[in-house]
Computed example of a mutant assay.
Amino acid sequence: MTGWWRVVLLVVLVATVSTGAVLWSTWMPGESVRGPLAAPDGETSALASVLEADVRALAEEIGERNMHTDGSMAATVDWLEQRLGAMGVTPERHVYVLQGGRWAGERAVNVVAEVPGTRAADEVVIVGAHYDTVPGSPGANDNASGVAVLLALAAWTRENPQARTVRFIAFANEEQPFHQTRDMGSEAYVRDADETGDAIAAMMALDGLGYYSTEPGSQHYPYDWIRWFYPERGDFIGFVTRTRDANLVRQAVGAFRRDATIPSEGAALPAIVPGIGWSDHRPFWDAGHAAFLVTDTLPFRDPQYHRRGDTPERLDYDRLARVAIGLRGVVEALGTPDGE
């Protein structure tokens, strides 16, 4: 065989392997919703009103929520405790001490509430969403939308307990300057949970769930090649994780699509791809736990990401409610022990 043919075969082999790897990473079970959305039913409309009220309470009544803004984190914790208590889910505070920077020695609070499992209570599924914002932003989409859905799922699970314990956590300090440091709320939480020996079966992070657009070209991606496998319109909700947790994200997408009334996409890509690890699931990966992110893709879609314009009136509460209802099926799937 000549050297030229060896080069041709090598190129074909590399292309075949690369294509196979991409197809493996992007294939998800079930069928996504296509075409115009069906009219919302009464439950969806009612839930949309609740979600909007929660987003407005966080983004308008409290506003910017971070360590830079005096009293804002404490006010948010109080509000979360009131909301959880009103739905019959008893909240607890996971308090940790900040270790670096200008706030070293101060305390931060993760708000935790759980619904005990009915048959496998020692196995824990964690649903998390950060409640803080970047300085200067009211954070309606990032991440009042995630917190609102977390509360909706907690209320539903309170009435529909699962075999496994489902633990709902509103995390502090996901944003800079704490992002991916020991002072990130989820980092501190998983560190303490591992020390106490919690059996974490899976973790689902909710981060930016409320901004959608049906305009062509409204959806962007970190690499150009990704757009060949996913929509150009930002009208879907995304499920993403690292390649190691592909089976988990496929389970989640399959469960979501069984009853979903909104488009959905999933991906299990290398953790180095920008955006794949940019939320509270990352510390769970680092601690060896399977975890994934549910998101509208935030900076790859939302023009007001981390800006003052991230305000409540921009969000699509009908679609947000559809996401929350679809995620009930994901909680059911994750809440079922392996083998059942």
Results as ranks from 00 to 15, higher is better:
174 E>C: 06
215 E>Q: 08
217 G>V: 04
209 L>R: 01
256 F>Y: 15
172 A>F: 01
172 A>M: 08
216 P>K: 09
193 A>D: 14
186 S>L: 03
235 D>Y: 00
189 Y>K: 13
192 D>G: 13
191 R>V: 00
237 I>P: 06
245 D>C: 00
217 G>S: 12
248 L>V: 07
237 I>L: 09
228 W>G: 12
207 D>G: 04
231 P>W: 04
212 Y>L: 07
192 D>A: 15
224 D>Y: 04
225 W>L: 09
181 T>F: 06
247 N>R: 11
175 E>N: 07
246 A>K: 05
197 G>P: 03
230 Y>T: 05
179 H>D: 12
247 N>W: 11
199 A>T: 10
237 I>F: 03
211 Y>W: 07
183 D>W: 09
236 F>I: 00
184 M>S: 05
245 D>K: 01
181 T>D: 08
243 T>F: 07
178 F>R: 01
240 V>A: 11
187 E>L: 09
232 E>S: 12
221 Y>C: 02
174 E>Q: 06
227 R>E: 15
246 A>P: 00
226 I>T: 06
222 P>D: 11
257 R>C: 10
241 T>S: 09
188 A>F: 09
220 H>N: 13
248 L>E: 13
247 N>G: 12
198 D>R: 14
179 H>M: 05
236 F>T: 04
203 M>L: 15
194 D>E: 14
236 F>L: 01
244 R>Y: 05
197 G>S: 12
248 L>K: 03
233 R>K: 03
245 D>G: 01
195 E>W: 00
176 Q>M: 10
204 M>Y: 10
194 D>Q: 14
243 T>E: 15
189 Y>E: 15
230 Y>S: 03
219 Q>S: 10
242 R>L: 01
258 R>H: 14
200 I>Q: 03
222 P>E: 09
184 M>V: 02
254 G>T: 09
191 R>K: 11
220 H>S: 14
215 E>C: 00
226 I>S: 09
199 A>D: 15
212 Y>A: 06
185 G>K: 12
232 E>I: 04
179 H>F: 15
183 D>K: 04
236 F>S: 03
184 M>P: 02
254 G>P: 08
242 R>D: 12
192 D>Y: 07
228 W>N: 13
255 A>E: 13
175 E>P: 01
173 N>I: 08
210 G>N: 10
228 W>H: 07
193 A>G: 06
186 S>G: 14
218 S>I: 00
243 T>M: 13
240 V>N: 00
184 M>A: 10
184 M>T: 02
201 A>E: 13
238 G>L: 06
223 Y>T: 10
238 G>H: 02
194 D>P: 08
229 F>L: 12
254 G>W: 06
221 Y>S: 06
234 G>E: 02
227 R>Q: 12
199 A>V: 11
213 S>D: 14
235 D>H: 01
201 A>G: 09
195 E>A: 15
240 V>S: 11
215 E>D: 14
248 L>H: 11
180 Q>C: 00
212 Y>P: 03
177 P>A: 15
200 I>W: 13
172 A>E: 03
180 Q>W: 08
207 D>H: 00
232 E>D: 14
252 A>E: 10
226 I>C: 04
227 R>V: 00
210 G>Y: 00
256 F>V: 04
183 D>V: 05
174 E>M: 03
241 T>D: 06
226 I>H: 03
257 R>I: 03
176 Q>C: 07
201 A>D: 10
199 A>Y: 10
245 D>T: 01
236 F>D: 10
252 A>C: 15
219 Q>N: 04
240 V>G: 08
228 W>V: 04
199 A>H: 14
